Amino acid sequence: MSTEASRVRTVRLASPEETHRLGVRLGELLEPGDFVGLIGDLGAGKTHLVRGVADGAQVPRSEVASPTFAIVYPYSGRIPLYHADLYRLTDYDDLYATGFLDLEGTESAMLVEWLDKIPQAAPRDYLRVTLKHAGGEARELTAEAFGARPAALLDAWMG
Rank of each mutant, 00 (worst) to 15 (best):
G56N: 08
S15V: 06
H20V: 06
E63T: 01
T142P: 02
G37A: 15
H83W: 00
A134Q: 03
S6M: 09
A134W: 02
R7K: 13
A109D: 09
G159D: 14
L111K: 01
E31A: 14
R51P: 02
P80I: 10
R139I: 07
G136R: 08
L101A: 11
G77S: 12
T98C: 09
L95Q: 02
A84H: 06
S62F: 11
L103T: 11
D155Y: 08
L111E: 04
K117R: 15
G147P: 08
V129D: 00
D155N: 10
R7N: 09
A70M: 09
G135F: 00
G33N: 14
L26M: 11
L141I: 04
V59Q: 00
V64H: 01
P32G: 12
L115K: 04
L153M: 09
G52I: 00
D41K: 06
A5D: 11
F100L: 15
L30V: 14
G43V: 00
F146S: 00
E17F: 06
T98M: 10
R61S: 14
L127T: 02
G56F: 05
A14C: 08
Q120M: 11
V112K: 00
G99C: 12
L127W: 07
R124S: 13
A148P: 10
L22P: 02
Y73G: 04
G56E: 06
A156P: 07
L111T: 01
R12C: 05
G56W: 07
P123R: 12
S62E: 10
S62K: 13
L154H: 04
M158Q: 10
G99H: 12
V24Y: 07
G99T: 11
A97F: 13
G37W: 13
M1C: 11
D91P: 09
R88V: 14
R61D: 14
M158A: 14
A134N: 04
P80L: 10
G43M: 09
Q58T: 08
G52Y: 01
H20A: 06
V112Q: 05
G159A: 14
E28W: 10
E18A: 08
S62R: 15
I79Y: 10
A138C: 07
G37N: 09
V72E: 03
Y82L: 10
R139A: 00
A70V: 15
P80Y: 13
G135A: 14
H83S: 01
A109T: 12
F100Q: 08
R12P: 02
R61I: 05
P67C: 01
F35Y: 13
R149L: 08
W114R: 03
E113S: 03
L13M: 05
H83G: 02
Y73P: 02
A152F: 07
